[in-house]
């Protein structure tokens, strides 16, 4: 490669930093939606590159479902403290109480649907006009069509038929009062790009991403962590396995994968060898329907 040619990771990084700075330049009150997973940790790392030595022009916001991995929560707090940025946490639990929401029932009752309520309330509480998220287009077919600046109406809804054309690197963030924009700086990264970047930049991650021993329930070929949030029945097969997580969402709906990966290099080798997609392998919530993600996005989910 010649002197003035950028490696693909540098190109992706530069594109993402540019998007971050567009958010800072175009919006009054942005927020970075921080989930504690590798994608949002990568976002934080990119934001550091975009704004240091200045402070972030936005707080980190975590919508806590109450079903998170304790390791991820501890990591979240530690990271926010280490970089000295503001962290806002809003709990789905509180929204459920305040709004008398009905919780999903069943074996792996998920709060994914309810999370949307808390998110929209939080947006309203702080008047956020842009929410930065770590979604990637390679994750899922519906995401593959979403813009980097994705306008949502007052109900947080996404209308796939009325997306603004997005040309060159020009992002149109003009909105009316009540609307807000979801911004996805790592849209063009793949799972493997993220891992290669984490390795290159030596980004620290919560321990659940690496192989560890865990008590899991085997259910339809998925390994679900034993936790107080799932229902365990008599006939369930429970065992202690060496596993890691490929995505870190709720304990109720994120499956672990059997793994002997103790380092980032090990993880990268496993991912290259795997023939299953990230969501397919680890998100049991997407398996319900082929259009699952699209439906949730339309309703204001990230």
């Amino acid at each position: 490669m010649s002197q003035y040619q950028l490696d693909y990771l540098d190109q992706l990084e530069s594109e993402s930093i540019h998007i971050f700075r567009e958010v800072a330049g175009q919006f009054e009150k942005p927020a970075l939606l921080f989930s504690g997973g590798k994608d949002s940790i990568t976002l934080v790392h990119l934001a550091l590159k975009a704004f240091r030595p200045g402070k972030f022009p936005f707080p980190l916001v975590h919508i806590d479902t109450g079903h998170n991995f304790p390791e991820a929560l501890a990591f979240r707090d530690q990271l926010a403290e280490q970089i000295g940025e503001k962290l806002i946490v809003r709990k789905v639990e509180d929204t459920i109480k305040a709004k008398h929401l009905t919780e999903q029932k069943g074996k792996f009752a998920s709060r994914n649907q309810l999370q949307t309520f808390t998110l929209l309330d939080t947006i309203e509480e702080f008047g956020f006009d842009a929410c930065i998220g770590g979604a990637r287009r390679d994750e899922e077919k519906a995401r593959a069509k979403e813009r980097i600046f994705s306008v949502r109406d007052d109900f947080g809804q996404w209308n796939p038929k009325l997306q603004r054309p997005e040309l060159w690197h020009t992002y149109n963030g003009k909105i009316h009062k009540g609307e807000n924009v979801r911004v996805f700086p790592i849209s063009n990264w793949t799972e493997l790009d993220i891992w290669n970047y984490i390795k290159r930049e030596n980004i620290q991650l919560p321990s659940v991403y690496f192989s560890h021993e865990r008590e899991v329930l085997e259910y339809q070929n998925a390994l679900i962590a034993v936790s107080p949030y799932i229902q365990i029945d008599e006939n369930d097969k429970i065992s202690t396995r060496r596993v890691r997580y490929r995505t870190v969402g709720d304990m109720t709906c994120t499956a672990a994968v059997a793994s002997e990966a103790y380092s980032i290099d090990d993880i990268i080798s496993e991912i290259i060898a795997t023939r299953t997609s990230e969501r397919g392998e680890t998100r049991i919530d997407d398996r319900f329907s082929e259009a699952a993600m699209e439906d949730r996005k339309k309703n204001g989910y990230f």
Partner: peptide, 15 residues
Amino acid sequence: TIDVAYKYFSTPKRK
């Protein structure tokens, strides 16, 4: 196909 859909793939040479 009614909208732009982005797809990603790589070979050992290029993304």
